[in-house]
Design a protein around this nucleic acid. Structure first.
Lengths: 351, 351
DNA sequence: AATAGTTTTGCAAACGTTTTCATAAAATTA
DNA sequence: TAATTTTATGAAAACGTTTGCAAAACTATT
């Protein structure tokens, strides 16, 4: 039973309890092969008796790694980021690192502030979402000279290492799929795209595919809504219930797509018979929902895991060169999209 | 522009650049009122010029707080925990703390290991989910004498501070509601209950309400499934497609409930016309899904926020007495449950 | 102009470790 | 048994801060 004498037990206490010098105690942790087994046993006993726990702060000021990695995300409670965090955490945890987590709520100033705080804690590396960051943020990272990695976006000319998918391609694939199914009347449901390169890439490319096909999306069919199930549902409901409605909805991510599907159901529309919906992401649950969501798969867990492995590696090997990894994405055809030819348009609301 | 001369800029570098002693630099951070404004200005200039960032590790070994709080959850990528983490993070962030996060995957040994690692980092406090922890874990917390708080469960005799809801009551409310609607043939869908006091409390109380009403749940109707949408859907599908099926499903949480609803839909059953489903939690999205989920609301964000506020407070005030907060829960009647009297049972599969 | 009081600053010890270097003890060899 | 090599340990400096104490620089008072 640990000695509860409030005195904070330090390495000195252990040393005297074990009747050895502090150097020996330290060594028995850091270079156990250099200390005699018998001595090690004495030390272990003392450690156990006193309930000693090493102080990483004290180690850290010797230039020894802190063993922490900072992770900043826009928000923690979106499926997609939660998945990334989990995978990232598992990957770096396997290498002995602990993560510091913070969210910035899509505010790049806040992101900088958070990152600075991480630096005060002398994290061994940092991970961010996307490549949209303030100049200050980039300079901070560069001036500290620690490994940094951007998760979620691939960009061949990124300023820091990145691992992710090509969001531009994602939007393209989604739009192309709808086109292939014969859709010409297409609505767009996207989150705000300022300060969000993921959404922006998808939107821009979708729009460009559409305009290449000579399709113009009327403003009323271009919905901008916060990244929220309820708000997306609300916004799409409004679109569906007023005036002419599109034959298909291209959504910036699966959450918005789900909101759209709920809105359709609420308006008495069947997906995909009356309207098709495609998402981007293939979030956890998208394959289970009824009807199963047709979407562009962005391998969140894989990205998170590789990001974790990659940054651990660059910390351990102290190599700071930029690496860029592009994860392939694919169209997952499920049940929420169908060719226009098979559609029943009569169900459209007449109110 | 920061001086990039790899030399790690420390307080000494700043001092000499500003032509003052290191004590003065230190003071200008910690007790600015003690240093002359003109001097402060010189120091600020030097700091900016060199890109100096304080080293919390060095401060920490003076007994100064590390400014970190450790948070251990079973898993990050379940809506419910993600919500809690977000709220908790925001609350402690407002007080200047940064969180260390780790997950243990429902393995209490791992939880202990993670907690130990947190202690090495000298976190100022720790937060855990639920009250099921190993004896070792409790002793570790007690021996370190730092504030600890358990999130999600209320228990009047908890060993550490706790904030949460009464899961026992939650199960009771859910079961009672089904009973009130006239259901007598009730299926139970729960996650494994060992090492999970939340689920256990709910299951035990539901069962007890049922048996008090002289209702016995046949083994085939007692489904144990991992906390996963797809596995719940799978398991419930099997139940629904083989043999007699219950008029209502009581699910241990909203994710399992959603899985059950999907399974019903897949089996051609309408919820609630052919079968009622009740969840527990009222997760984000439960109110939006179609049909809206009837459930017992556990205020996740509120719990997370209060937990964060509470632990910040006890760290700052250095007061370590146990506090226990019980958040009220309520039945949210929505669309997935209806009285047996109105049900259509003919739709049941005959295969 | 000398004194007393205040404000501002610097010196040095302390915090809990790791690590280099030197020394003591043990094992090996001659 | 003495000399040599190897292995195990300890003393002390170093890491980047904070802070108690004392000295220095001002201000105000006579």
């Amino acid at each position: 039973m640990p000695d509860l004498k409030k005195k904070n037990v330090d390495i000195i206490a252990v040393a005297s309890a074990a009747k050895v010098s502090i150097s020996t105690v330290s060594r028995s942790y850091n270079h156990p092969e250099l200390v005699k087994p018998a001595t090690r046993k004495k030390i272990d006993a003392a450690v156990r008796k006193l309930g000693y726990i090493r102080n990483r702060a004290a180690q850290t000021i010797h230039g020894i790694r802190s063993g922490t990695i900072g992770l900043v995300v826009p928000t923690i409670d979106h499926t997609i980021f939660a998945e990334v965090i989990q995978a990232f955490s598992d990957a770096v945890g396997a290498e002995g690192f602990t993560i510091l987590v913070a969210s910035h709520g899509y505010d790049l100033e806040k992101e900088y502030a958070v990152l600075r705080k991480f630096m005060e804690h002398r994290v061994d590396g940092v991970a961010l979402i996307g490549l949209d960051h303030s100049e200050e943020t980039y300079q901070l990272i560069e001036s500290q000279g620690i490994p940094a990695i951007s998760i979620w976006n691939y960009d061949g000319s990124s300023r820091i290492s990145c691992i992710g998918a090509d969001n531009y391609l994602a939007g393209q694939k989604a739009a192309t799929h709808l086109l292939n199914l014969g859709h010409r009347e297409i609505g767009l449901v996207f989150p705000p795209t300022s300060d969000n390169d993921r959404a922006r890439g998808r939107l821009v490319s979708a729009l460009s595919v559409l305009s290449d096909a000579n399709i113009e999306v009327p403003p009323r069919w271009r919905i901008e809504t916060p990244y929220s199930l309820s708000e997306a549902k609300e916004a799409v409901s409004k679109l569906l219930d007023e005036g002419k409605c599109p034959t298909a909805l291209l959504c910036g991510n699966d959450v918005l797509a789900l909101g759209a599907i709920y809105a359709a159901k609420r308006s008495g529309l069947d997906v995909p018979v009356n309207i098709s919906v495609i998402g981007i992401g293939d979030f956890k649950g998208s394959s289970e929902m009824e009807p199963n969501l047709t979407t562009i798969r962005l391998p969140a867990r894989r990205i998170g895991r590789i990001a974790g492995e990659e940054i651990s590696r660059s910390i351990i090997e102290a190599q700071t060169e930029v690496v860029r990894i592009n994860c392939t994405i694919e169209l997952i055809e499920r049940e929420t999209c169908q060719p226009v030819t098979g559609m029943v348009r009569s169900a459209l609301p007449s109110k």
